[in-house]
């Protein structure tokens, strides 16, 4: 079954957005809500265009993307490899698990002062907080993915003479990949939250900084522009991760037919 863009479908998916934008435009324009607090979408769009033409938009988006990607990629690399080790070697897990249970309850925001203390106010501490927030869901879902691999698949491969390397790379890793990607998708969402927090606490660039700074200097339209752009970045990241997930777990969709 293909995804068909029927006119009804297009209507259904746009009608809510259009109604929302209309209401948002009307409320401040009609003076029902103070336009000083709520800028209408037309003004927000204007602010986005201004930011784009001055080059500030690119600067902020670049800074935010760099931080979130750096933090997320580090979290994926380390979370997946540690998770695989912990899921595979029971001993590694029993040693590290109590420690990790404690750390995962430690809020990334609470640790920010520590990161600043050690890593300074620059990029490193921001990447560290994003890393911390994204790391845990990836680690935990990788561990559970490895532990939940169907024992029958392992036994079957063993009975054919598979060695540990084959078991790990050709059975455990693909079998665990759906669970790993669930963790990565979740990490994508956490990563944006941590990004905003980091950029609001101590930064001179980035969409989080833009949002808070605009409010402080009472540039309300560009404050809303910052919020909107953060949402766009979040959507974009989720979309990218969903693509990646599809690439690696296509066999689960049941849509591919041979020929």
């Amino acid at each position: 079954m293909g995804f068909k863009l029927t006119s009804r479908r297009v209507f259904d998916s746009t009608v809510g957005i259009v109604a929302f934008l209309a209401l948002w435009e009307a409320l401040p324009q009609l003076g029902i809500v103070n336009p000083g607090y709520l800028s209408p979408p037309s003004a927000v769009l204007g602010a986005v265009l201004d930011l784009a033409s001055s080059g500030d938009l690119l600067k902020h988006v670049q800074a935010s993307l760099f931080r979130s990607f750096a933090g997320l990629l580090l979290a994926i690399a380390s979370g997946v490899s540690l998770g695989l080790m912990m899921g595979w070697f029971a001993r590694v897990e029993s040693v590290l698990d109590p420690l990790l249970q404690f750390f995962r309850q430690t809020s990334a925001l609470a640790l920010f002062p520590v990161f600043i203390l050690f890593l300074g106010i620059g990029e490193l501490s921001k990447i560290a907080i994003i890393f911390w927030a994204s790391f845990w869901p990836i680690l935990l879902s990788t561990i559970s993915g490895v532990k939940q691999v169907d024992g029958l698949l392992i036994n079957s491969a063993l009975s054919m003479g598979a060695n540990r390397w084959f078991l790990f790379t050709k059975i455990v890793l693909p079998a665990a990949s759906p669970s790993i990607f669930t963790g990565i998708r979740l990490a994508g969402a956490y990563c944006i939250t941590a990004l905003v927090a980091a950029e609001m606490i101590g930064a001179h660039s980035g969409l989080g900084f833009l949002t808070l700074n605009s409010q402080e200097v009472f540039q309300i339209p560009s404050m809303y522009a910052g919020i909107l752009l953060l949402a766009v970045v979040g959507l974009l990241l989720n979309f990218l991760l969903a693509l990646l997930e599809r690439r690696f777990t296509y066999w689960r969709r049941g849509l591919r037919h041979g020929g």
């Binding site: 169907d150 693909p174 777990t249």
Partner: peptide
């Protein structure tokens, strides 16, 4: 493991990600 043996399980044990 005896490599000269093949095993067929009740639960098929096919790898779902492979054709």
């Amino acid at each position: 493991i005896n490599r000269n043996q093949g095993v067929v399980f009740q639960g098929y044990a096919l790898l779902p990600w492979r054709t």
